[in-house]
Design a protein around this nucleic acid. Structure first.
Lengths: 193, 193
DNA sequence: TAATTTAATATACACATCGTATGTATGGTA
DNA sequence: TACCATACATACGATGTGTATATTAAATTA
């Protein structure tokens, strides 16, 4: 029963999937909703019914990618433990993630421009949240200086993000990546007590 | 003589000025070129002749603001000297600059989304360049660790940028700003030898 | 100074795209 | 089976960009 809900969920998934591809390849502004919906055998009627408007579709796409990013960071931290090494591992994971063109274009460039400051997003920028949790724990342990946890998390993420944009835009990413990771580690040690 | 060049320069200036206001208030995408040009008594004919297209106008606006930002950072550094304190002062200046809604919307949000990675811009993101110069000097002095100067400059700027976005989006910026500055200083000390 | 050329800007048009208002058809329900 | 709700399609209007053509004013030359 409830075949309608099922097919609606399928159509939502199809549209999000098509939007991911279109937004990543052409950018948000240059993506036509007519083309995008036609690609999956629908029309804009389905789109506006499900997502309200073009921005709503972008928001749904961003949320999906954001959750995937959080899962990736979670795995990286799990490998490295919950301590100082975990924090560094998460930063490195974040830098790696931002090398993905899909993440760059959709989450890092068009997302903020169209949806506004990431910290205000419903998905709450999961990466930011998890970084903040680690920082809080390390402060409580006495590993880190007594510093505002959110501030530290935001700056760390910002540094990692810019590092990733730099690496990705460079001519030889494989040569630049180690430099970025080294600089990130150095900066992070500034938080140690 | 050459009154034509003069009036053309005046028109360019008018258009850039109107664009600064429109882009800052409505964002790039929502700014109509018809409205914008009409505001200064011109039509889109002048615009397309001078700037090629809408992106060209944004590029011109970004370049102008970027130069102003560089001048501001220069002054802040001059006050604090050329050493370690100068680097911190420049970071603080950058955070302050990014609190300006015009800078946020145009240079930090729409700029990267429409024009691509800032380091590829003709203006070369002057702030980044000056930070890099200081870092190089401090490394040569032995004050900072042997680290890639561009990497360090990029991460510092990225951290400052995110700090500013956070502060600006917060409910009580005046309470949050000190936290951001403290976290920035802490991070930066990680670069010290 | 008058004629001619050049170029900066205005005007008009073609095309694309978004959002909405209305229509339709199918799954759920009494 | 008849009815209703709703997911989606279709049709339309408005807006906005870029371009091609026209116009006007400055610069140049004879």
């Amino acid at each position: 029963m409830n075949q309608r809900l099922k097919s609606m969920a399928e159509n939502r998934a199809k549209l999000i999937s098509a939007a991911r591809k279109a937004f990543a390849e052409k950018g948000y502004a240059a993506s036509s909703m007519d083309d995008l919906t036609a690609d999956v055998g629908l029309t804009r009627g389905a789109l506006y019914h499900n997502f309200g408007d073009k921005r709503g579709l972008l928001a749904a796409v961003v949320e999906q990618i954001d959750l995937e990013m959080a899962a990736h960071a979670q795995r990286a931290r799990a490998k490295a433990g919950d301590g100082w090494q975990g924090l560094l591992a998460e930063g490195a994971a974040y830098i790696e993630l931002a090398l993905d063109p899909e993440v760059q274009r959709i989450v890092l460039l068009d997302g903020p421009a169209v949806l506004g400051d990431p910290s205000q997003w419903p998905s709450q920028s999961s990466c930011l949240e998890s970084t903040k949790l680690i920082v809080e724990r390390l402060i409580a342990e006495g590993t880190l200086k007594q510093i505002d946890a959110e501030a530290a998390a935001r700056l760390l993420n910002g540094a990692a993000l810019n590092a990733a944009l730099w690496v990705a835009a460079s001519a030889a990413p494989q040569n630049v990546l180690p430099k970025a990771l080294a600089a990130f580690s150095a900066l992070a040690t500034g938080l140690l007590k």
